[in-house]
Design a protein around this nucleic acid. Structure first.
Lengths: 200, 200
DNA sequence: GTCTATACACAGATAGAC
DNA sequence: GTCTATCTGTGTATAGAC
């Protein structure tokens, strides 16, 4: 049987245990407060053990970021699929982004700050691009010019991020109690920003 | 004469030298990358010297944040004073916030992440409140309900922050070359968000 | 007001045993 | 795959001399 642990093989899946511990740590102390040593302690292994699963500290964080982008992709895709009007699709994205930030504070923080590391981890850049590309279709329905589409995508993205960041930083008050109001505000703001300019 | 330095009194103003060194450090490595030890090295003093000027590391950061809020207040007040229409005043604020972030990356980062420390440093909370209060007047010209004013202020603030953060994180490309386009976008976005809802 | 010296804690990473 | 042991680097902060 494989249920016995001859000591020296504590985990069936240390890799995932470390990823989960790291996520908790980031949620508690922020992305910078994460250390491989502390994650090891929480997973119940020595500080040397992680190096059999990750090249170094950054590699573990990059893997978390990649998973975060994939989760975003699935969530946003589902939220947008529930709408047919392109303006409402972009509004749904903004609301979903705020919800993601509230529900997965750590992943939200890691994915945003992972921009710098994209050069070293191609899989990361690709996963991030897939998320952004979700906005392309609705944007194309609203404006024809490619530059104008980029403009719209960036505007919606920046606004959604602003709401998400204010929420998680507690600027709107306690994050759990202000979540509903914030998603509503983000959705309303995205609508105004995506709607064809009334006086242009 | 006071021009000689009897060794043991290197600086006429070590306090300010440390603040400046800290600012450079944050600009290079982020708010978390700042250390008192490195700031001391750059100022050319021992690691013990700062403790005659600041209680600890956090006190130095809090002082920087306070100065950052004051700078914001002056900049935003001036930008808004150039406009008379309340919608344009809020738009001017958003543009000025993006410019501040680009021009003072370190202060931008410190002031935003300083939220947590406000409890320990009352002067900080006060300086931050003064900045936010600048938006109250134009908001009051646009909506009567206090809750609606808060809503508007938060919406404009979140959107402006989103543009500023995307710019400094390089999401729009190189920050220096994309600054102009970003201030324009932030201004346009704030206008749409502040304008009375066309179908409400 | 600044220095030297020091105590203390903690991180990242590797070598070699099992 | 995991452990123990270790090296190395770095930061915070204090004590006491000048």
């Amino acid at each position: 049987m494989a249920t016995t642990r001859p000591s020296g093989q504590h985990h069936g899946d240390l890799r995932n245990a470390l990823l989960r511990a790291a996520l908790d740590l980031v949620a508690e102390r922020g992305a910078q407060g994460f250390t491989l040593a502390e994650a090891s302690r929480r997973a119940g292994v020595s500080v040397a053990a992680p190096y059999k699963h990750f090249a170094d500290k950054d590699a573990l964080l990059a893997e978390l970021a990649r998973a975060g982008y994939e989760r975003q992709h699935d969530l946003f895709q589902a939220a947008m699929a529930a709408e047919t009007d392109p303006v409402e699709q972009l509004a749904a994205f903004a609301a979903a982004y705020v919800e993601f930030a509230a529900e997965s504070r750590a992943l939200f923080e890691i994915t945003f700050s992972a921009g710098l590391a994209k050069a070293r981890y191609p899989a990361l850049a690709e996963a991030g691009d897939r998320v952004l590309s979700l906005l392309r279709t609705p944007a194309a329905h609203l404006v024809t010019d490619t530059a104008a589409q980029d403009d719209l995508i960036h505007t919606i993205g920046a606004a959604a991020y602003g709401f998400a960041a204010f929420l998680t930083e507690g600027i709107f008050g306690d994050p759990t109690t202000s979540l509903d109001a914030t998603t509503r505000r983000a959705r309303a703001a995205a609508r105004k920003l995506a709607r064809p300019d009334p006086q242009a």
